[in-house]
């Protein structure tokens, strides 16, 4: 179970005006601006739930993911994930999670994908039998077959994303964070990825937290949606709450963004 309560995070960002003169000034004196990335964010996610975490760019999505995965320490508030504090018990916590950053690869560029998997096996200390079983299952369901013997740099975006997802599930994590997993994928790959996530969640009861801009992802995958804007949770409900009578998800969301002025 994930329990986040009253979490806030503020960054200090240096600012300066355009032009050479102010650049010269900024050498000696720099002004800072407080940016509230998260303001009093609270939510609870049950085991096995699948949640869509949406909001415009800069709303605080990635700060939340970073806090949940133990990379970032918030200024205020508490967070407990399966009884562990992610940033204090980071090493123990991250054993139980898998993370896919959609725009960054965790695969080694120049060696066959399978070599990256073997390394992950050592990193997570996955027992051989578990590793083999997971690898075979993922290979079959994600249709990896030949891809495993190909260097990552030769894979198409869709093929690579399938390999990335498999890489983050080799150690049977209880929670999976997907940060824009379908960005830039072609239609076939998108469908394949969605179907796989849905099935995996059903079969293994893995908790999935998904950030995306693609409303079709949300419609296909999640029942619950958390909408964040300007660092605050604006809505925590179901697809129908978002749709609010609208037919089209994108339009519905645009209407919401307008309503909250985000």
């Amino acid at each position: 179970m994930i329990e986040m309560s009253h979490v806030s995070k503020t960054y200090k960002v240096s600012k300066r005006d355009a032009g050479a003169v102010s650049a010269l000034k900024s050498i000696f004196h720099r002004e800072y601006e407080q940016v509230h990335a998260l303001k009093d964010v609270s939510f609870t996610i049950q085991d096995g739930e699948m949640v869509g975490y949406i909001g415009p760019n800069g709303a605080g999505k990635s700060s939340t993911i970073k806090i949940l995965s133990g990379i970032l320490t918030p200024d205020e508030g508490t967070c407990l994930i399966n009884g562990l504090n992610p940033w204090k018990d980071r090493i123990r916590h991250v054993k139980e999670i898998g993370v896919v950053f959609g725009q960054r690869s965790q695969l080694w560029w120049d060696v066959p994908v399978i070599d990256s998997y073997e390394l992950l096996k050592d990193i997570y200390r996955i027992p051989k039998s578990v590793y083999e079983q997971n690898k075979d299952e993922l290979t079959e369901l994600l249709n990896l077959g030949e891809l495993l013997r190909t260097p990552a740099r030769q894979l198409s975006l869709g093929q690579r994303m399938r390999c990335e997802i498999a890489a983050s599930l080799l150690h049977s994590p209880k929670i999976l964070f997907l940060d824009e997993p379908t960005i830039g994928l072609d239609a076939v790959s998108k469908l394949a990825v969605r179907e796989f996530i849905l099935n995996h969640n059903k079969k293994h009861k893995t908790t999935v937290i998904l950030t995306t801009h693609d409303m079709q992802d949300i419609e296909a995958l999640t029942e619950r949606i958390i909408l964040i804007g300007k660092g605050q949770i604006l809505l925590d409900g179901t697809i129908d709450d978002i749709k609010n009578g609208n037919e089209n998800m994108d339009e519905a969301l645009a209407a919401l963004y307008q309503k909250y002025e985000i």
Binding site: A23, L24, S26, I27, R30
Partner: peptide, 9 residues
């Protein structure tokens, strides 16, 4: 370039 250079103080 000049003002970019200045930025990295």
């Amino acid at each position: 370039r000049f003002s970019m250079g200045l930025q990295y103080r």
